[in-house]
Design a protein around this nucleic acid. Structure first.
Length: 370
DNA sequence: GTATGCTTTCGGC
DNA sequence: TTACGGCCGAAAGCATAC
């Protein structure tokens, strides 16, 4: 039986800001993404618990959060993403040293397979989690919550139960009782769309979900999603904890000073983003085969238009005329005003060439050895 | 009809 | 009453080949 941890840092961005500035302690702290369009245009990325008491949520407009906190002293801070990434590397490095297998899934979340380290024992696991929390706090002054169970699905659900600084264990014999009362969308991967569909059929909890046969589920949702729902309702998840692969895409997106339909203005706004993506490509030494222009309209609807090359491209500079053309073509078909524009590159140089490199390395080694 | 691979949209953080 | 980022990976949607 495996023992899997899911580690989730508590209100990560805001917690880092609190740690670095003791004046913030005990007061609402909101880390915000300012778009630069007007002084308060933008959204809240993360808020600490003091702010959440006032109903502030991630993703809501800054101006709305200001309203909720108008009679309270509160701190609205601009997001410092590069700095948080640096801290993330630090805490992830610590966690990794405690895991047999390690999988970082976001800036502040990770799975750990600790089966061997705790000898498959859940009371060992609890103590081990405590030890990890203490060591992370000793070295970084940051707190996290940990979910413990036999697979990633259950560990992830568990980590959200007790926060902050929580440890929640779901032992094998507790799985059904634990899942029974939870709403269906507590299963990661089941969102509004799927849970609404199930609600309309009269199913509200994971307990209800277990009454549906596999056959029925696959008829409604198709084989892939159907099997996924059937297994999840029973706490079954066989996906392994595995090291994160190289990134599959880079993107940059920017809110315009004002909405526009002018292809020249849109392109001018893309230029700095193109440079930043180029820098990143160079840093990683990646080439891309596909690129896409992202358009977000006044009503916040997202569109993308893309193009794929057979030959991997080294730099955006090589395809800037095609970027221009994608913008023109898009404006010819869609004429709602553009609020935000972005660019992404993906389809990085195929595994084939990587295999070639390892093959070449092997040949070198082989030649050296004879 | 179904498997596959590509493009676009969705949704979490 | 409205207000509204920037990134990523995954799902959904679509086209094509058989």
């Amino acid at each position: 039986m495996k023992v899997i941890f899911h580690v989730d840092f508590d209100y990560f961005y805001a917690q880092i800001e609190e740690r670095d500035n003791p004046n913030l302690k005990g007061k609402p702290v909101l880390v915000c993404v300012y778009s630069g369009r007007s002084p308060d245009s933008g959204v809240v990325a993360t808020a600490n618990y003091e702010a959440r008491k006032y109903g502030v949520k991630s993703g809501e407009p800054i101006i709305l959060a200001k309203n909720k906190l108008k009679n309270t002293p509160a701190f609205f801070l601009p997001v410092r993403k590069n700095y948080y990434n640096f801290i993330s590397d630090e805490v992830m490095g610590i966690l990794k040293s405690y895991a047999g297998f390690f999988q970082q899934t976001s800036i502040d979340e990770a799975y750990m397979d600790v089966t061997r380290r705790v000898k498959s024992d859940f009371s060992n696991a609890y103590n081990y989690a405590k030890q990890i929390q203490n060591e992370v706090f000793r070295r970084t002054r940051l707190t996290c919550s940990i979910g413990i169970s036999i697979n990633k699905l259950l560990a992830k659900i568990a980590s959200g139960v007790k926060k902050p600084k929580g440890i929640t264990v779901i032992k094998p014999e507790e799985i059904y009782a634990f899942l029974e009362p939870l709403p269906i969308n507590a299963i990661p991967g089941i969102g509004v769309k799927t849970s609404m569909k199930l609600k309309q059929l009269g199913y509200n909890t994971i307990g209800d979900l277990r009454k549906i046969s596999l056959r029925e589920l696959t008829e409604i949702f198709g084989s892939k999603l159907g099997v996924f729902i059937y297994n999840s309702a029973r706490g079954v998840d066989t996906s392994p904890v595995k090291e994160k692969e190289a990134p599959g895409q880079f993107s940059k997106i920017k809110t315009l000073k004002e909405d526009s339909l002018n292809p020249d203005i849109l392109y001018e706004n893309l230029k700095p983003l193109m440079r930043e993506i180029d820098d990143k490509l160079k840093k990683y030494n990646f080439k891309f085969k596909s690129f896409a222009v992202i358009f977000i309209t006044t009503n916040l609807k997202t569109y993308t238009r893309s193009k794929t090359h057979i030959i991997p491209q080294k730099s955006i500079q090589e395809i800037k005329l095609e970027v221009k053309k994608l913008i023109k073509d898009f404006l010819n078909t869609e004429q709602s005003l553009i609020r935000r524009i972005g660019l992404k590159v993906y389809n990085f140089e195929s595994d084939k060439s990587e295999q070639q490199t390892t093959l070449q390395l092997f040949i070198k080694k082989f030649n050296n050895s004879i």
